[in-house]
Write a protein that binds this DNA or RNA. Structure first.
Lengths: 231, 231
DNA sequence: CGATGCTTTGAATCTCGTCAAGATGTGTGG
DNA sequence: CCACACATCTTGACGAGATTCAAAGCATCG
C-alpha cells in the first residue's frame, strides 16, 4: 500500500543512505517529489520476476531478499537486503529477479524513468547510482567465489560475516536471522538439511551458539572470519 | 607490448563492438586518439589483482580469462573473454581480479580516466559503457545460479552454450576450447578430474564428442541446451 | 628421443543431497 | 487453557556425486 503523494515532510532523508549521499537540499526535494512510501508486511513481493521493470526501491526499514526462479523450479537467492540498500535498477524491460520482504517493511519507491531522468540533472545522484551498481556487481562476484570454492560451513560463516556487516544493530553477541533456513540454503547453494547440520557443527565446535532458532551468537569471531575468509 | 601512439588508421573500429556501437565518426576519432593497441602472446597478464585500476581493454582478437585468487590459494575464474568484450572498469582503486590471455591477443587499451572523461561528452559512449556493465552483472548473476544449483555435467553444458553464443566462429560441429581443463574447473567450481569425468559422461551419453583435446563437437544440441537450462 | 605439462582414469574417501522421522514452534478453534 | 494442525527445523540413515590421491596415457617441445 502506498501513501498518496507524500510530501517531503513525511520522508526521512536524513539517514545515511547510499542513494541520497551528498545530495543538496534541493536535490533531496526533487527526489522527495517523485518518491512514494512503500509499506508492506512480511512475505510480500515488491515485484516478481518477468514483470515490467518500472519501479525501484530504496529500503528504509525491514529486510527483504532477491530471488531468481528457474523453469526447473530451482530457486537461487541472489541477495538479502537491509536498510539503505537500493534495488530494482534494470537495463532490461522485465525484472530478471523478484524481491520478497522478510519482515515488516518500508521503502521509498520511485519510477525508474523518473529517477534516471532526475539523475541526468543531478550529477551526485548519478554517481550514487553508479556506485550502488558497482557494489551490486562486487557482491555478485563475491558470491560466485563463495559458491564456487567454499564448503558448507565456510559458506555459512560468509553469510554470518555479511549479516554482521550489513544488518543494522547486529552484534556478534546477538545476531538476528530474519530469513528461514530454506532462504539461507537457496542463498548458499545448499539444502535446508545441510544448513541445519552445518550450524550444528559450528555450534559443536564452539564457534557459535544458537539461543533460539532465529538468533545466533558468535562465540569465536576470529574463527568465523577465518572460515569466511573474504579478503 | 604497445605500439606507440597508434593513429586512427591502424585501429579497426568497424566491427560490431559493444563499446563502439552507434558512435559518430568524430567520437570514434576521439576514441582512437586515446587508444593504444595492446598486443600480447598467450598466458600473459593484461593486469593482475591488487594493482592500480588505471587501464581498460576492449578485446579485438583472441581470448582471455578473468580470475580472482584468494589468500587461501583458491582460484575462481569469473569469466572468459572474447572479441568485443570490454574489461577493466573498476570503481575501486585496485583491480579486484586479474586478466590473463589464453591465446595470442590484441585489444584496444585505454586509460580509464581518459575514457570516462570522453564518455562525459559522448552520451552514446556513456550508454555503451552502462550497457556493458549491466551485461557483466547479468553474467555474474547467471554464474551464481549455475554454481548454486547445478550438477557438474549441467555446468559443463552451461559453458558449452556460452561458448557457442560468444566465441566467434564457434559452431556445434566444431567448438574450440581455448582454455585448459583447470581453467574450466575453476570457472565452474569443480576439480579438473570432475571436469574430465563429466566430459567423458557426456561423450558416453552421445551428447558430445571430443575429436581432440581442445575441440568439442556437439552431437545433441537439444540435450546440451536442456541440461544447461538457462532461460 | 626423453622431459615436461596437461589430461584421463581408477580407487578410496568425504561431503552433501535425499528420504524419512521426530522435534519444536505457532496459530487456531474448541 | 488445552488440543490439534501446520510449518519449520533438526537429526538419522543411506546413497549419489564430487574430491583427493595416485598412476598412467598423450601431446608438445626441446
Amino acid at each position: 500500500m502506498n501513501s498518496d503523494n507524500p510530501s517531503r515532510g513525511n520522508i526521512d532523508f536524513g539517514r545515511d543512505y547510499d542513494l541520497y549521499r551528498g545530495l543538496s537540499e534541493s536535490e533531496l526535494g526533487s527526489l522527495a517529489d517523485i518518491a512514494r512510501l512503500k509499506i508492506c508486511s512480511e512475505q510480500q513481493y515488491l515485484f516478481t520476476q518477468h514483470t515490467p521493470a518500472e519501479r525501484v526501491f530504496n529500503l528504509i526499514t525491514g529486510c527483504a531478499l532477491v530471488e531468481r526462479m528457474s523453469s526447473t523450479g530451482h530457486r537461487q537467492v541472489l541477495a538479502f537486503l537491509f536498510p539503505g540498500d537500493f534495488v530494482g535498477l534494470s537495463n532490461t524491460e522485465f525484472f530478471e529477479y523478484g524481491v520478497k520482504t522478510l519482515t515488516e517493511f518500508t521503502a521509498h519507491e520511485f519510477n525508474q524513468q523518473k529517477l534516471l531522468a532526475l539523475a541526468d540533472s543531478a550529477p551526485q545522484l548519478k554517481r550514487n547510482i553508479k556506485d550502488i551498481s558497482a557494489n551490486v556487481l562486487a557482491h555478485a562476484l563475491d558470491q560466485v567465489y563463495v559458491l564456487g570454492q567454499k564448503k558448507a560451513d565456510e559458506r555459512l560463516c560468509f553469510l554470518i560475516v555479511e549479516l554482521l556487516q550489513r544488518m543494522p544493530g547486529a552484534t556478534p553477541e546477538n545476531l538476528l536471522l530474519p530469513m528461514t533456513r530454506q532462504d539461507i540454503a537457496d542463498y548458499l547453494g545448499l539444502t535446508v538439511e545441510t544448513v541445519s547440520r552445518s550450524l550444528a557443527k559450528l555450534k559443536r565446535d564452539g564457534v557459535i551458539s544458537i539461543p533460539s532458532r532465529h538468533v545466533l551468537r558468535v562465540e569465536n569471531l576470529a574463527e568465523v572470519l577465518h572460515l569466511a575468509d573474504m579478503e
